[in-house]
């Protein structure tokens, strides 16, 4: 390997090694946020069917080292949990309009 290419390779490896803990830490924060939102939806009685499973899959992907896929799953779960909370907020009153009269 030429000295210039060897240097690039070493620098790239160094960046990856230095950056990985940061990315993993960021994903852990995102995972905790999504888990917190899911818990709020569950407490309100409005948890959606597959949100918890998405977070489980995300954890598995993190263990396998596929952080991109893990992040995509976390974002999907977070979207679902937020939507469930919006649903809970709306239904706190909206159900009354459907009562037969």
């Amino acid at each position: 390997m030429a000295p210039a290419r060897a240097s690039k390779f070493i620098i790239t490896i160094a960046i990856v090694l230095l950056a990985a803990p940061g990315v993993a830490a960021d994903i852990n924060i995102r995972l905790a946020e999504a888990q917190g939102l899911l818990q709020q939806a569950a407490d309100a009685g409005y948890e959606w069917l597959e949100t918890a499973a998405l977070l489980e899959q995300a954890r598995a992907e993190m263990e396998n080292g596929d952080l991109d896929n893990a992040l995509a799953l976390i974002e999907k779960a977070q979207f679902q949990a937020e939507a469930a909370l919006i649903q809970a907020e709306r239904e706190a009153e909206a159900w009354r309009s459907r009562v037969l009269q």
Binding site: G45, W48, L49, E50, Q87, E91, W95, R98
Partner: peptide, 14 residues
């Protein structure tokens, strides 16, 4: 009664 008339889930159905 509230449960019966409340929409829930991804399909948003009561």
């Amino acid at each position: 009664k509230r449960f019966y008339y409340s929409k829930r889930g991804q399909l948003n159905l009561a």
